[in-house]
C-alpha cells in the first residue's frame, strides 16, 4: 500500500505499461495486448511529432514577430506549411509533393552529407594535429591503412593494403571490437531501460 500511496501517477503508468509490454515481448501469449498498446504508442508518437511540428512553428513564429532574423523564420514557416498542405492534400506520391521532396529536401540533404566529407577530413586532420594519446594514434594509423586499402588511390592500387592488410583489419581486428561495442551498448541499454521500469529515472518529470 505504501508503494501505491507514494508512487506518483505518471510513474505508475510508466512502470505498469512498461512491464506489460516487456512481459508481452517475452511471452507470445500476450501478443494481442502488446499490439494494442504498441498501436497506441505509435499513434501517440505520431501526435508527438505533430507537437514537435507545432513547437517549431511556434518558435519561429515568435522569432518572426519579434524581428529576430525574421526572413529566415519566414522561409522556414513558408516551407513548412506549404509542404505540409501539399503533401497532405495529394499524398507523398503526388506530383507536387514529389517535386518538393526531389527538388528541395533531397538535394539539400545529400549536399549536407557531401559537406560532411570535407568536415570529416578536416576533423581527422585536426585529430592528427592535436591529439597524441594512444587511442588517437591507433585510430589515425588505422584510418590511413584503411584509406590505402579502400581501392586504387589516384588510380594506383597497392595490393599489400587492398589484398592483405585491409581485409585483415576489417575482418579480424575490428570485428571483435565491434561485437564488444555492440554488447556493451546493449548492456547499457538494458540497465537504462530497467532504471525506468524501476521508477528510478523519470524523464516524464514525475
Amino acid at each position: 500500500m505504501n508503494l501505491r500511496l507514494r508512487t506518483p501517477f505518471s510513474a505508475a503508468v510508466a512502470i505498469a505499461i512498461g512491464l506489460i509490454v516487456l512481459v508481452s515481448l517475452l511471452f507470445p501469449d500476450f501478443t494481442d495486448l502488446r499490439n494494442r498498446i504498441l498501436n497506441w504508442a505509435i499513434l501517440l508518437a505520431a501526435v508527438a511529432l505533430l507537437l514537435g511540428f507545432a513547437n517549431l512553428f511556434q518558435v519561429h513564429f515568435q522569432k518572426m514577430r519579434h524581428g529576430e532574423k525574421p526572413v529566415y523564420s519566414l522561409i522556414l514557416l513558408a516551407g513548412m506549411l506549404v509542404t505540409f498542405i501539399i503533401t497532405f492534400w495529394e499524398g507523398s506520391q503526388g506530383f507536387t509533393a514529389s517535386w518538393i521532396f526531389n527538388s528541395i529536401q533531397l538535394p539539400i540533404e545529400t549536399s549536407l552529407m557531401a559537406v560532411l566529407a570535407i568536415s570529416l577530413t578536416i576533423a581527422a586532420a585536426r585529430l592528427f594535429q592535436q591529439r597524441k594519446d594512444l587511442m588517437s594514434i591507433v585510430f589515425l594509423v588505422t584510418l590511413f591503412v584503411l584509406l590505402l586499402s579502400s581501392g586504387p588511390l589516384f588510380g594506383i592500387e597497392l595490393p599489400l593494403f587492398t589484398r592483405t592488410i585491409g581485409p585483415y583489419v576489417n575482418n579480424f581486428l575490428s570485428v571483435g571490437a565491434l561485437r564488444g561495442l555492440l554488447i556493451g551498448v546493449s548492456i547499457g541499454t538494458l540497465a537504462t531501460g530497467l532504471r525506468i521500469l524501476l521508477g528510478a529515472d523519470r524523464p516524464y518529470g514525475g
Binding site: 578536416i122 592528427f128 584509406l147 590505402l148
Partner: peptide
C-alpha cells in the same frame, strides 16, 4: 587519395 593526402598535410601543417 586526396582525403589521405589532405589529412596528412593538414595534420602536418598544424
Amino acid at each position: 587519395g586526396a582525403i589521405l593526402l589532405l589529412i596528412l598535410l593538414g595534420g602536418l601543417y598544424g
